[in-house]
Amino acid sequence: MAKKEYSFYPGCSSQKAASSSNYQVSVDSMCNELDIQLNTIPDWNCCSASIGYAGGGELPRIALSARNLALSEQANPGQDVVATCAACWLATKETKERLHEDDGLMEETNQALSAAGLNVKADQKVRHMVEVLIEDFGYDELGKHVKKPLDGIKIAGYVGCQTNRPFGIDGESFENPKYLDKLVETMGAEPIEKYEKKVQCCGGALAFSEPEKSQAMIKDIIEAAYDGGADMIATPCPVCQMNVEVYQNHINKKYNTKFKMPVVYYSQLMSVAYGKNYKESGLNGQVITPEKLSIIAKK
């Protein structure tokens, strides 16, 4: 297949030494194998995720994502905007839709952007990396690149919220999306098919402001993975990954559990299956080591 190019919006958490920097490492490795060229939007800014609304009204928040779209149009004309972070994708896609639904908003947004010497049309597609994999490659093509099948690993595919709602992946249901299980299977691992917490909310940003309430939900997400016999959880979302992985000690203390459930990104599964090593797959960024995946990565 010929090289594919996209305008890339990496997002704050993927930056060097940030909370999902290991996601970015694995995405780079995966894209290298698939001959995907990610052209980073120059000088991109934060989208304010889904928690910017206290300080930012509708227009300032829309302006944030519109600035990224405008910069993308300038530097990478004609290219789809691709995000790896669920919140980045949601905010940017939401902005594009609202600008086209509301002429007044488009005009005001461009008035604000002109203060930064920019102008937006917002006519490009805004896509999640998972959409690129499924729609521009497809499971068969993704499977052809597998060098080391993930034999014998049982994986709970935790899709979470914002990669799934309100937009989701075309052709998938909001209540029982199957794409993550299909990706897991394509990499030679075994999906936990009846993972009932696959679209359960982890609390999102409220894991910081309402930790007790969020951790009660996270506990259920992990427990269901154990009940299904999973060796690890896989997710497409940086907030899901962090929330479900890093508070397990606290949950163990509070609920008298013995959780030690690894939580990885789909791109890490793919990097390892594509023959990339431990570090190239970002596995040195895991707080809880996914043993079975690490063994294959080090082989």
């Binding site: 704050c12 958490s13 934060c46 206290a54 300080g55 940003a205 910081f208 402001s209 309402e210």
Partner: peptide, 18 residues
């Protein structure tokens, strides 16, 4: 959540990135 959300907004608008 109101307090945290305001912190988040102030943080990101300061340098453009969180």
């Amino acid at each position: 959540t109101e307090k945290f959300a305001q912190l988040f907004w102030d943080n990101l608008t300061n340098t453009g990135r969180v």
